[in-house]
Write a protein that binds this DNA or RNA. Structure first.
Length: 602
DNA sequence: GTAGGGTTAG
């Protein structure tokens, strides 16, 4: 075997046959060498023959492992599992060891069996039998399995795997806990994340910088959905300090990226930028994710130009943008209706070595639809298909919505057919888009038919569905019917009205000279913990202007300030016209004073 | 462990 001669395996096989004919017993070492050699040469039959020629008394776990490996590699999995089964039996002559586990898992992994030919449950059952034999997973395998189970939506099985192993005497380290923590985090299962953190403490498993990263990220992203949005980025920030002091881990690029994103998502761009400066000062190198995170935060908060400057600055420092960078910019320019710039970026990106992926195409299609350039969107959609990116449900919905808004119901129908041919089923968004269209066309019967199909498809009407109906009834002048739906939402459905619903109704009431009712709904919002926004106040101000009800307007202006709600150009237009016409410029001035910074950015 | 596109409101 050590000589460099040709066709070693077949020569060795001749030698083996010769020895066998001569009834020379095969030693375990010789058998091991032969099986390994034949195994590598994919000579399954020969491997088995050697194994069979071996005196059963001299067989050991090692040689059975080799056989097992040959069987799996040779694709003879049925026999492989039979051999394994014997090994795993109680009082087995060849008890499994770490190599056995490795061979089996490698076979399962390589053939992409997880979740396909072998279910997560089956793998769990198999691995637990190893545990019962005192053979445990190493960190790498345990982490791999936990990650994979979580990604297949079976984080409960990942949980069991980790706990079964520890219960039966195995040791796990932070990496495996991290994998499970991140899986649980993805499902927003904070309760079990906390349990797991406590277990780490009890078992004195020291959390590492990744553990802290996971926690910081989830703190930054956690917010209450039902009530006022409240991010916990401050807690994330404090946790970073705690990590530094108590564990001695220095925050790294990922730690900072998570925090920067947390503050960006909470609209605190200044703090994000401070963190960006801090990381640079501390010698933590920003990467393309840092760039994209900050850029997205800036763009989404109306600072596209600062964002572009940041991009240029980072490029100067060697951080190249990627497809995600361009997606952010394209989306941002589309959202301010600067389609030319968005198209230009799309065409430029390839020159900068960033080739558009599916999502770049999708963002452009969406942006064009939102900017009511549905035909252009359709062209880009064709280009995307040519580039090999089939449209997804979000694109189809955008195009359907775009054609509906343009009153091109035939085109919308074509898209629906296209979508069906591509094997994509309508979802909640599709149905809501169609319901919105038909009800605005006062085709309420059709809208209700669509709604019925939506329910049959398993989608209960949600706040958007009701919002579309309420809006349509308001538009058709039937505010009473709209109010009926609104009241029905609270009493008969489990769908609490949101800001959009209130805004729709308040606007309609104010426009039909029922400003008192509008103000009463504003009070209702406060009671229900639904935050009014600029649109809410604008509607009320317009209603009050009609009545020239100045005192009430002053009251509401104070409320708006208290709620830290920024006026926009419409607020300014209404109030400036009205209040200066009646000589109340002093109140206007003091109202705007509190907003100096924010109005200038607006 | 970190980054990108969606339906309803003025």
């Amino acid at each position: 075997m050590r000589e460099e001669i040709s066709d070693v395996p077949s020569k060795l096989y001749h030698l083996f046959s010769f020895a066998k004919d001569g009834e020379i017993p095969l030693s375990i070492n010789a058998a091991t060498l032969l099986i390994r050699c034949f195994g590598r040469a994919k000579m399954l039959e020969e491997s088995i023959a050697v194994f069979n020629a071996l005196d059963p008394e001299s067989r050991n776990t090692n040689v059975v492992n080799l056989l097992l490996d040959c069987l799996f590699r040779g694709g003879n999995t049925d026999d492989g599992f039979k051999v394994l089964d014997e090994m795993l039996e109680r009082e087995s002559s060849f008890p499994p060891n770490e190599s056995t586990m490795d061979i089996v898992l490698s076979a399962i992994w390589k053939r992409n069996w997880v979740g396909r030919r072998m279910s997560v449950e089956e793998i769990c059952g198999l691995v637990v039998r190893f545990f019962e034999n005192g053979v445990f997973l190493d960190d790498v395998w345990l982490t791999k399995l936990i990650t994979n189970f979580c990604r297949s939506g079976k984080s409960n099985k990942a949980w069991d795997l980790l706990h079964d192993m520890m219960r039966l005497g195995g040791q796990a380290e932070a990496v495996s806990f991290n994998a499970l923590l991140s899986g649980l985090g993805r499902e927003r299962d904070f309760e079990n994340m906390n349990l797991l953190m406590n277990e780490m403490k009890e078992k004195e498993i020291k959390p590492d910088v990744v553990t802290f990263g996971i926690l910081i990220n989830h703190l930054c992203k956690s917010y209450k959905v039902d009530e006022a949005m409240q991010w916990r980025q401050e807690e994330g920030f404090k946790l970073m300090e705690k990590m530094r002091l108590e564990s001695g881990y220095e925050p790294n690029t990922v730690t900072y990226n998570c925090l920067i994103d947390g503050f960006c998502k909470a609209g605190e761009i200044e703090r994000s930028y401070e963190l960006f400066d801090q990381m640079k000062k501390c010698g933590v190198v920003p990467n393309v994710i840092t760039l994209n995170t900050l850029l997205d935060g800036m763009c989404k908060h109306g600072r596209v130009n600062s964002g572009i400057e940041l991009f240029a600055e980072m490029q100067g420092k060697g951080v190249k943008g990627n497809a995600i960078t361009y997606t952010i910019l394209i989306t941002s320019f589309c959202s301010v209706n600067n389609i030319d710039k968005a198209m230009k970026l799309f065409n430029e990106m390839s020159e900068n070595g960033c080739f558009p992926d599916a999502k770049v195409y999708y963002s452009l299609i969406l942006g064009l639809c939102q900017a009511r350039r549905t035909n252009d969107a359709s062209c880009v959609a064709s280009k995307a298909k040519e580039a090999g990116f089939g449209l997804d449900i979000i694109c189809y919905n955008a195009l359907i919505g775009g054609f509906c808004r343009k009153n091109k119901i035939d085109e919308a129908h074509n898209m629906l057919r296209d979508m069906e041919e591509a094997g994509i089923k309508p979802d909640r968004y599709t149905y809501n888009t169609l319901i919105s269209y038909f009800s605005q066309k006062e085709q309420f019967a059709t809208a209700h038919r669509v709604m019925k199909r939506m329910i049959d498809d398993g989608y209960l009407p949600n706040v958007v569905t009701y919002g579309a109906l309420i809006h349509a009834y308001c538009l058709s002048g039937n505010v009473d019917e709209a109010m009926k739906i609104f009241q029905n939402m609270s009493s008969s459905t489990n769908v609490p009205p949101n800001t959009v619903i209130y805004n729709t109704l308040i606007d309609a009431l104010c426009k039909s000279d029922k400003v008192e009712a509008g103000i009463s709904l504003l009070g209702d919002m406060k009671d229900k913990g639904v935050r009014p926004n600029t649109i809410t106040y604008n509607a009320i101000f317009k209603g009050l202007q009609e009545r020239n009800w100045v005192e009430k307007a002053f009251e509401i202006m104070d409320q708006m300030t208290e709620n830290a709600c920024n006026p926009d150009y419409i607020t300014m237009e209404v109030l400036t016209q009205w209040l200066s016409a009646i000589g109340e410029t002093e109140k206007l001035r003091s109202f705007l004073e509190g907003y100096e910074v924010s109005t200038s950015t607006a």
